[in-house]
Simulated scan of single mutants.
Amino acid sequence: MFRFIRIALSDFADLLFPTLCLGCTRSLTANEKILCTRCRINLPETGQHRRADDDHILNKFAGKVPIQFVASYLHFSKGGIVQKLIHRIKYKGQKEAAREMALWYGDLLKREGSKLPELDLLISVPMSKARLQQRGFNQAEWIAAGLSEALAVPMQADILVRKRFRSSQTRKNRIERWENVKNEFVVRQADVIQGLRVALVDDVLTTGATLEACAVALLQAGCSSVSVLTLAATR
């Protein structure tokens, strides 16, 4: 009886305050989450998980740090749906959207990611305490949680620590981004990651400077290999 009442109240609330697609703002059906079926089908997937030799994305790290594998779920373009989704996640508090999209990506990797190496641990890119207090959550943690659930690979959010807040990376070039983050990351539990094959998880791969700095810290602390998984990547 109580279950029936809860369901009825939930349905009534949906009529008054329908859940909207984060892409086109249409009302979602009961079987849709985050995006309507049309928006989800039209997401600009990269397909990078099927190719171990994607020169464009690998070149972001070439000659800088040995990254075993790099893949991003979606292409990020200015003004596109992916930018809208990332903006809603980071600045509108849509953290559940980050986890849900990561579940979609993790399922795709599990089904089609034949090039994905064996992984022992997922590590989210950390925020500074100041930025975390400002935003209230770290979107990379929510993405890592979704990937962890889908891939059945454990994740930890407290391995890497960002020492302090630096200026935003948004309008910086490759060199400026690296100068902004080099030596910023510290491994707090080096004994936990000795010899492990880890994957760094973040929202968007742009120049790769932040992920590069994280990878350097992890490799110096004893990881056997570092891969990179992100929700999106710039072209």
Results as ranks from 00 to 15, higher is better:
residue 100 E to I: 05
residue 100 E to M: 02
residue 100 E to A: 03
residue 100 E to C: 11
residue 100 E to S: 03
residue 100 E to H: 13
residue 100 E to P: 04
residue 100 E to V: 05
residue 101 M to L: 09
residue 101 M to I: 06
residue 101 M to V: 00
residue 101 M to P: 00
residue 101 M to H: 00
residue 101 M to F: 06
residue 102 A to G: 06
residue 102 A to M: 07
residue 102 A to N: 04
residue 102 A to S: 13
residue 102 A to D: 05
residue 103 L to H: 11
residue 103 L to K: 14
residue 103 L to Q: 09
residue 104 W to P: 02
residue 104 W to Q: 10
residue 105 Y to R: 02
residue 105 Y to D: 01
residue 105 Y to H: 06
residue 105 Y to M: 04
residue 105 Y to S: 02
residue 106 G to K: 06
residue 106 G to D: 05
residue 106 G to N: 07
residue 106 G to R: 02
residue 106 G to S: 01
residue 106 G to C: 10
residue 106 G to T: 06
residue 107 D to T: 08
residue 107 D to Q: 09
residue 107 D to E: 13
residue 107 D to H: 04
residue 108 L to G: 11
residue 108 L to Q: 14
residue 108 L to R: 15
residue 108 L to T: 15
residue 109 L to C: 15
residue 109 L to H: 10
residue 109 L to V: 13
residue 109 L to T: 10
residue 110 K to I: 11
residue 110 K to M: 14
residue 110 K to L: 11
residue 110 K to W: 06
residue 110 K to D: 12
residue 111 R to L: 08
residue 111 R to S: 10
residue 111 R to E: 12
residue 111 R to F: 01
residue 111 R to D: 04
residue 111 R to A: 12
residue 112 E to Y: 09
residue 112 E to K: 07
residue 112 E to M: 13
residue 112 E to C: 07
residue 113 G to E: 01
residue 114 S to V: 03
residue 114 S to E: 02
residue 114 S to L: 05
residue 114 S to I: 03
residue 114 S to D: 01
residue 115 K to R: 04
residue 115 K to H: 06
residue 115 K to G: 00
residue 115 K to L: 01
residue 115 K to N: 02
residue 115 K to C: 03
residue 116 L to P: 07
residue 116 L to I: 13
residue 116 L to N: 06
residue 116 L to W: 08
residue 117 P to R: 08
residue 117 P to D: 14
residue 117 P to Q: 12
residue 117 P to F: 11
residue 117 P to I: 11
residue 117 P to C: 12
residue 117 P to K: 08
residue 118 E to L: 13
residue 118 E to S: 08
residue 118 E to W: 00
residue 119 L to S: 00
residue 119 L to H: 07
residue 119 L to M: 02
residue 119 L to C: 03
residue 119 L to R: 00
residue 120 D to Y: 06
residue 120 D to C: 06
residue 120 D to M: 00
residue 120 D to G: 03
residue 120 D to K: 07
residue 121 L to Q: 07
residue 121 L to D: 08
residue 121 L to N: 05
residue 121 L to S: 11
residue 122 L to F: 05
residue 122 L to K: 01
residue 122 L to P: 06
residue 122 L to Y: 04
residue 123 I to Q: 01
residue 123 I to Y: 07
residue 123 I to H: 02
residue 123 I to E: 01
residue 124 S to A: 14
residue 124 S to Y: 01
residue 124 S to M: 05
residue 125 V to T: 15
residue 125 V to Q: 10
residue 126 P to R: 04
residue 126 P to Y: 11
residue 127 M to C: 05
residue 127 M to A: 00
residue 127 M to V: 08
residue 127 M to E: 04
residue 128 S to N: 04
residue 128 S to F: 13
residue 129 K to M: 10
residue 129 K to G: 13
residue 129 K to C: 01
residue 130 A to C: 05
residue 130 A to R: 12
residue 130 A to G: 00
residue 130 A to H: 08
residue 130 A to K: 12
residue 130 A to F: 09
residue 130 A to Y: 02
residue 131 R to F: 11
residue 131 R to G: 14
residue 131 R to C: 09
residue 131 R to W: 09
residue 132 L to G: 05
residue 132 L to A: 14
residue 132 L to W: 13
residue 133 Q to F: 14
residue 133 Q to M: 15
residue 133 Q to D: 12
residue 134 Q to H: 11
residue 134 Q to W: 12
residue 134 Q to A: 10
residue 134 Q to M: 10
residue 135 R to T: 09
residue 135 R to M: 14
residue 135 R to D: 14
residue 135 R to G: 10
residue 135 R to L: 15
residue 136 G to Q: 08
residue 136 G to C: 07
